[in-house]
Computed example of a mutant assay.
Amino acid sequence: MQDADKGTELKLDGTHLRVGIVQARFNAALTDKLAESCKTELLALGVTERHIRHVTVPGALEVPIALQAMADSGDYEALVALGCIIRGETYHFELVANESGAGVTRISLDHQIPIANAILTVENEAQAWARAEEKGRDAGRVAVEMALLLKELQ
C-alpha cells in the first residue's frame, strides 16, 4: 500500500492495537471467509490474538448495535464490520444495505472510532466469493491504518 501523497510504502504496526470484529452469520460461508482473511491480516500487521475480539450477530442489520456496544466500552482502537448482503427479488436488499451502512457510519462518527466496513453488497453469490478474501484482508489493513492515523491526529 502506498501513501498517495508521498508515494511511499506505509509501514503499519498494529502491535499495541485492540480491534473488535463484528461478523454477521447470514451467508455464513462467505462471512467466515471475510473473518478468516481479516484476522490473518490483523495478525500479519502485529495485532496479537488476545487483542482481537470477534463476535457474531444474526445478520447485517444487527452489526451496528454490536459495534456500538464495543465502541461504548472504550476497549478498542478500531472496529471491523463483516457481512454479506446478496440482492434478491425484493426491496429488502436496499433496506438492509442502506440501513446497515448508515448505522456503521453513524457509530464511527459519533464515537470517533475507525470502523472498516466490509459488509459486501453484491448482485449474486459469485460476486461475493470473488471479493470475500480481498475485502476481508482490506478490512484488517484499513482498521490498523485508521487506528494509527487517529492516534497520530489526537
Rank of each mutant, 00 (worst) to 15 (best):
D5A: 14
D5M: 14
G7R: 05
L12I: 12
D13G: 02
D13N: 05
D13Y: 08
G14A: 01
G14R: 05
T15R: 09
H16Y: 14
R18T: 12
G20S: 04
G20W: 00
R25H: 13
F26G: 02
A28C: 13
T31N: 08
T31F: 08
T31G: 04
D32A: 11
K33G: 10
A35W: 07
E36F: 12
S37E: 10
C38P: 00
K39C: 15
E41W: 12
E41G: 04
E41A: 00
L42V: 02
L43H: 13
L45T: 10
L45G: 01
H51W: 12
I52N: 00
R53E: 14
R53D: 14
V55C: 08
V55E: 07
V55F: 05
E62I: 08
P64K: 05
P64N: 02
A69P: 15
A71C: 06
A71G: 08
D72W: 04
D72M: 11
S73L: 03
D75A: 11
Y76W: 06
Y76C: 05
Y76H: 04
E77K: 13
E77G: 10
A78G: 04
L79F: 04
L79Y: 06
V80R: 07
L82M: 11
G83W: 03
C84M: 13
C84D: 00
I85W: 07
I86V: 06
I86Q: 02
R87C: 09
G88H: 10
G88I: 12
G88D: 07
E89L: 00
T90K: 08
Y91Q: 15
H92T: 06
E94N: 01
L95G: 04
A97K: 09
N98I: 12
N98Y: 12
E99Q: 15
E99V: 15
V104P: 02
V104E: 01
R106H: 09
S108W: 05
S108K: 08
Q112L: 15
I113C: 07
A118K: 00
L120D: 07
T121Y: 03
Q127C: 11
A128K: 03
A130Q: 01
R131W: 08
R131D: 07
E133D: 12
K135S: 12
K135V: 11
K135L: 09
R137L: 03
R137V: 07
R137C: 03
D138Q: 15
D138I: 11
A139T: 05
G140D: 09
R141V: 08
V142I: 14
A143R: 01
V144W: 01
V144P: 02
V144I: 07
M146I: 02
A147N: 00
L150P: 04
E152W: 09
E152C: 07
